[in-house]
Amino acid sequence: MARRKKIYEGKAKILYEGPEPGTIVQYFKDDATAFNAEKMATIEGKGVLNNRLSEFFMTGLNNVGVPTHFMRRLNMREQLVRACEIVPLEIIVRNFAAGSLSKRLGIEEGTALPRPIVEYCYKDDKLGDPLVTEEHIAAFGWASQQDMDDILSLALRVNDYLSGLMYGVGIKLIDFKIEIGRVYDGDFQRLIVADEISPDSCRLWDMETGAHLDKDVFRRDLGSLTDAYTEVARRLGVLPKTNGHTKPTLIN
C-alpha cells in the first residue's frame, strides 16, 4: 500500500490525503490535552470512542438536513470526510454556565442561561484561541456577514439536535464547540459543519447526578476519561449493553 501523505497533525487528530480528489482521511488519536496543551496524556481507546461518537453525531445531523463534512467511517480510528476550507473560528454554543464563561462573569457553574449564547474564538493555539466579536471577524475578513448569519443558524440547529438527543438519554448538554468549513460547487459557496463532535468538544453532565461525562474529567482529574466517554456511547446505543464486568465492544 502506498504511504499516505500527512496534511496536518493536531492535538487530537491527524489528517491525511484521501483516496479521491476532494477527500481527507481523519484519524483520531488517543492523545488528550487540556489548557492549550499544558496538560497532556495518552488515554487508551479515546480515539476509537471519539471516531465512533463523531460518526454517530455527524450522521444524525446529515439525516436531519444539517450539512457536515462526514462521508463514511473507514475503520475503528479513521473516517473519510469532505475536504473544505476551515473558517478560522471556533463556534461555542452555551446552554448553561460553565468553564471560562463562569470564570469571566462570576456565574455559578450549572446555572441555566436565559437562552443559548453563541461565542466565537479565533483559532490560534499560540494566542490561546482568544474570544472575538463579530466586529473583529468582519474587520479582519475571517467571515462575511452572510457567513456569520449562516454560521449562527448552523450552530443553533446543531444545538437543537444535540440537546434533544442528549436529553433523551439523561444527559444535559452544557455547551459545545464546532468548526465550520467552506465548500465550493463552481462559483457557489456553502458552509458545513466540520472537524468533529465528541465528548472532547462538548460538556456533558448526567442529569440526575451532575457527573461529568466529557473532557473535564481529564482537565479536573475527576476519574477515568475512557469510562466517561464509554458511558456516553453506551447510552446513545453506539455500545451494546453488557452484563457483569465484560469489557464492552463497539458496534460495527
Rank of each mutant, 00 (worst) to 15 (best):
T42K: 15
G22C: 05
K11E: 02
E44Y: 01
E44V: 04
I43H: 07
G10N: 12
Y27H: 15
A41M: 05
F35I: 06
Y16N: 00
K11G: 04
I14G: 01
E44N: 01
D31M: 03
D31I: 08
E44H: 01
D30S: 13
A34K: 12
Q26N: 13
A12K: 05
E9M: 06
E20H: 13
E20C: 10
F35H: 10
G18A: 14
I14M: 04
A12D: 12
K13V: 00
M40Q: 12
A37Y: 02
I24A: 03
A41I: 00
Y8W: 10
P21T: 07
G18R: 12
P19Y: 11
G10P: 12
P19W: 07
T23Y: 06
A12E: 06
A37H: 03
K46L: 08
G22D: 05
K13N: 05
E20T: 11
D30E: 10
K39P: 08
Y8L: 07
I43K: 09
F28C: 10
I43P: 02
I14R: 15
D30K: 14
V25W: 00
N36I: 11
G22E: 02
A32D: 10
M40A: 13
E44F: 00
D31S: 15
K39E: 14
A32P: 08
Q26M: 15
A34D: 07
K29L: 13
A41Q: 04
A12L: 05
G18S: 11
E9S: 15
Q26L: 15
K39A: 14
N36Q: 06
D30Q: 12
A37G: 00
E20P: 05
G10T: 09
A32Q: 11
I43M: 11
K46N: 05
G18D: 13
G45T: 06
P21A: 09
A12R: 08
G18P: 11
K29I: 02
G45H: 09
L15Q: 06
I43Y: 07
T42R: 15
P19C: 04
E44L: 02
T33K: 01
E20L: 09
G45E: 12
T42L: 14
K13L: 01
E38V: 03
P21N: 07
Y27T: 14
M40P: 00
Y16T: 02
E20M: 12
P19N: 12
K11V: 04
T42P: 02
